[in-house]
Design a protein around this nucleic acid. Structure first.
Lengths: 196, 196
DNA sequence: GATCGACTTGGTCACCCGTCCAAGTAATAG
DNA sequence: CTATTACTTGGACGGGTGACCAAGTCGATC
């Protein structure tokens, strides 16, 4: 038999998981305490026992998922030796997301919610910045020109692709890789145009 | 004195304008008939007189705004002779949008709402496709390699930039233009690698 | 066995929701 | 002047909302 504290943690976890499902499904502002509790298989009153507010629960659930995705990308990059390999790896991993899947939609919902919640914005900015820094560092280490700016554009382009995919079926990694490859400047290529 | 039909049209217009304000402000699913009517300075019952449902009103309002932005971009492109000029023009125009302004947020809100409303998705896809086709045609006419794919990536990257801007202040057109320029292949450049 | 404290239950509070509609106003057509 | 038409008003309908809480459960500790 479990201790009540253990069951409490489990309930908390179930609520966060239910939120990660429901935010993409219904939209951030359309997730209610009752629906959340029902989906988690839990009494309605528990939401406000384990979390100070519905907003706080949604923020934590979204940042959890995004944080996990960001944490997975670092190792994926490090495994790639060349810029081309890294780009292909990232875009290949992105093929798991159709733009309509829960994770893609959760990302976008969170970006929007961050415009209306200062706490969320601050923490989301931290996560996105970390991702961008990792990407920039990886680019720099492999001789990429203007690594920070390239990382910013690349990060934005990846999220933009997720946004456009449901409206543009041609936006596959196969179609996109050759185009995005042009963003990368190889060390042995056209790298010396002094200054800029 | 105005005829009642004229006043009716005016009310319809006011409701659409109010919706275009409120969708970014509160989030798509958090716009209610009563708040809408209040913002428009109009009685609540008028919403369902002029529109079959709240959803239909929101769809029309969003597509109006997006359609107008898309319609403005064509002429902007045509004015530019070279790929570089066109890119700079587009990115410069994008500087009017901070990513937190109503139009930027409305775009993203609409992409998300389209995932949950088939009618909206169909019409939004038509608009986005039109934009992409115009961009691709313009690119092809100026000797760009793989114009369709480049247009797809460029369109996605632009929306992605709007999504990321509030979280990444360095994402200015000045920082981004030199990077995105690498996407463009000049006619006199490395253009003949037959087939591909 | 008694006490404590974490967790849970089920419900209450005041309020907002989309939709619909009977009754009213007022410009126009006959 | 009457009938028609288009538009407007204010409220009613059933139902969902976030937050809160008194009472209850139950393992852990003394």
């Amino acid at each position: 038999m479990k201790t009540s504290v253990e069951r409490g943690r489990e309930v908390r976890r179930k609520l966060l998981d239910a939120a990660a499902d429901l935010i993409p499904e219904r939209g951030w502002t359309a997730v209610s305490t009752r629906i959340l509790a029902e989906r988690a298989g839990v009494a309605p009153g528990l939401v406000h026992y384990h979390f100070p507010s519905l907003q706080a629960l949604l923020n934590e659930a979204a940042l959890d998922v995004i944080g996990r995705v960001v944490a997975e990308t670092g190792p994926l990059l490090e495994r790639a030796e060349t810029l081309d390999d890294g780009l292909e790896g990232m875009l290949g991993a992105l093929d798991a997301f159709t733009g309509s899947d829960p994770v893609s939609v959760l990302f976008t919902e969170t970006y929007l919610a961050a415009a209306r919640d200062e706490d969320l914005r601050r923490e989301l900015t931290a996560l996105v910045t970390r991702f961008r820094r990792e990407l920039a560092g990886w680019l720099r280490a492999r001789g990429q020109e203007a690594p920070e700016e390239t990382a910013s554009v690349l990060a934005a382009a990846l999220d933009g692709m997720m946004l456009h995919r449901p409206l543009n079926p041609e936006l596959t990694s196969a179609a996109v890789t050759p185009v995005l490859r042009r963003l990368l400047t190889r060390p042995g290529g056209d790298d010396h145009r002094a200054g800029g």
